[in-house]
Write a protein that binds this DNA or RNA. Structure first.
Lengths: 195, 195
DNA sequence: GTCTATAATCTGATAGAC
DNA sequence: GTCTATCAGATTATAGAC
């Protein structure tokens, strides 16, 4: 039977991160107290410090994991694709991946300012890594003549901003399925950088 | 000569709003204390409550003013334009207007969750009003055949997300002038919804 | 209109019992 | 590994002097 106290290190750690992710996304990092996180997990505040040295490290772990997952998932997806197919794959991947983890995406855009300089730089570097993957696709397409963009760096940022924007309005069970949203955005992106 | 105390209601109010805008944008609404705002203005914390009933109202005033300014400025700009010119005008206007007030734009996207339900609904209604102005342009263009979008509502949201994204990377004195950024984004938007 | 002082509460983090 | 108790300081907002 369930014990009130005991050893749960393998499940408490993930539960703390899950609770922090949800609370930070809903109320904002600064507005959420360690006591609130502890209450959601069902432990006392002091117990959190067995799993994280401080509150900022908890935020950093969430943001770092998200960026690592994002890049690894895209690299796995791109590996099987011919270069010519990669732009469409990127559009559909980015929308799908982000819609599956709205809290983490929200945090990654909103709470960077709560990181210290080194942690901030680490996340920014990962974000640039991801952006570079899209820019590489656009440059390659421009060399074959399939793509025409007046500025590949700006096109990269414009496309990512446009795709990430889906998270601000998409609601499950709404007018459009995720696949249909992918179709519509792919149509707009394809035309935006067409030759 | 300057007095240490006295009557300054006409200048203290705007200075409080300006200080709050800058601090909220830099550190986040929840992370900024009324004492910090008061210190920046040069008054004591208690004096702030002569100008705002509470902290949330201060945030709401900033967001409401921004949305009112945005809509009024666009309506004034659109008034002199033929329908066929309005999409390009909108693209250039949105980029220019947002780059002129990055703090207010940042707040409008990041701190909505700190508003109570009624205040939140009021800002959301204004945001929809603004979006509707772009969607009206797209619909009109589609009727004349100048524009082709698979879904005008999604095209509206995609364009606004793409344009607002400029604020996240644009730096004064960088590689590109504001006008040049407007040129490049207009090229992409024009093609994205081209027939 | 601004000040000082204060109420009542919350904060992140630590120490030590079990 | 989790608990309780605690430190030292912060928080929003108000009361009343000037």
């Amino acid at each position: 039977m369930a014990r009130k106290t005991g050893s749960h290190s393998e499940i408490t750690g993930p539960r703390i991160r899950a609770a922090a992710l949800g609370l930070f996304a809903r109320y904002g990092y600064a507005a959420v107290s360690m006591r609130q996180i502890a209450a959601e997990v069902g432990v006392q505040a002091g117990a959190l410090y067995l799993y994280t040295p401080d509150k900022e490290s908890l935020l950093f772990d969430l943001l770092k994991s998200h960026m690592d997952d994002l890049i690894a998932a895209w690299d796995a997806e791109a590996a099987g694709k011919a270069p010519i197919e990669r732009l469409e794959a990127f559009v559909r991947f980015h929308i799908r991946f982000n819609l599956e983890r709205p809290d983490a995406v929200f945090l990654s855009y909103m709470e960077l300012r709560n990181l210290g300089p080194e942690n901030f730089a680490a996340i920014e570097a990962l974000r640039r890594d991801y952006e570079d993957r899209l820019e590489t696709i656009l440059r390659a397409g421009q060399e074959t003549g399939a793509i025409s963009a007046p500025d590949t760096k700006l096109a990269t940022l414009a496309i990512i901003a446009m795709l990430t924007g889906v998270n601000t309005w998409y609601r499950e069970g709404g007018r459009l399925s995720r696949d249909k949203v992918g179709d519509i955005y792919w149509d707009m992106v394809r035309k935006a950088v067409s030759a």
